[in-house]
């Protein structure tokens, strides 16, 4: 049972670290635009196709 004296403090410290990082993210404005962040990920800022892609994008006009 003596392992408990190690494990319980570890649990508490992990919990406190989580709580502290939540406070940090809250103060940093991470929760100010939840909707926007959810939608932002759908739109790539980078318009060029990745180099590994070799097929032609359907949007390009065919000559």
């Amino acid at each position: 049972m003596s392992i408990l004296s190690l494990l319980i403090p570890v649990t508490l410290v992990m919990g406190l670290v989580g709580l502290a990082s939540f406070f940090w993210s809250l103060r940093n404005g991470q929760y100010e635009d939840l909707e926007g962040d959810a939608e932002r990920i759908l739109y790539d800022e980078d318009d060029r196709p990745l180099p590994s892609r070799t097929y032609k994008s359907p949007k390009e006009p065919t000559p």
């Binding site: 926007g36 939608e39 932002r40 990920i41 759908l42 739109y43 800022e45």
Partner: peptide, 9 residues
């Protein structure tokens, strides 16, 4: 009139 991620970007 901002409605979606499209408008945002």
């Amino acid at each position: 009139d901002i409605r979606c991620g499209g408008c945002v970007s």
